[in-house]
């Protein structure tokens, strides 16, 4: 069964989805356009420093439909992003809404500066 799904997926074109990466005070935000991708059809993997997002869009058209113009179709989206050490890997949040994946990568809390007492000998 898995072999069949693999073959099916190989037939759809692959794209690097359009991605915005920006920084705000609370961390890095990544926005990825994934039109037509449902939550169950996508995966986000974090391996070492590489975050990989994959998704498959299924547009689902009715039977007996004739296409006059086709500028987008079913596709597979793959995008890898290297992330820095200052990202807190445990607190990465992902939210897929209306075809856009939002990833929030918070920064690691900075260690507070600490004064070191000098003991008088």
């Amino acid at each position: 069964m898995s072999e069949i799904t693999k073959k099916e997926e190989r037939n759809v074109p692959r794209y690097r989805p359009a991605t915005d990466i920006l920084e705000r005070e609370d961390g890095f935000y990544i926005y990825i356009d994934l039109p037509g991708v449902k939550r169950e059809d996508m995966t986000i993997d974090l391996q070492e420093d590489e975050l990989t997002v994959t998704g498959v869009s299924r547009l689902g058209q009715g039977e007996g439909e004739h296409f006059v113009e086709m500028q987008f179709g079913d596709s597979e989206y793959v995008r890898s992003i290297s992330i820095t050490d200052i990202v807190d890997r445990e607190r990465i949040k992902a939210n897929l809404e209306n075809g856009v994946l939002e990833l929030l990568l918070p920064k690691v809390e900075k260690t507070q500066p600490k004064r070191i007492e000098i003991q008088a000998g």
């Binding site: 547009l59 009715g62 039977e63 439909e65 004739h66 006059v68 113009e69 987008f72």
Partner: peptide, 9 residues
């Protein structure tokens, strides 16, 4: 945006 145009009966 990219468009798809189709029709059926």
């Amino acid at each position: 945006p990219p468009l798809n145009l189709s029709n059926d009966d």
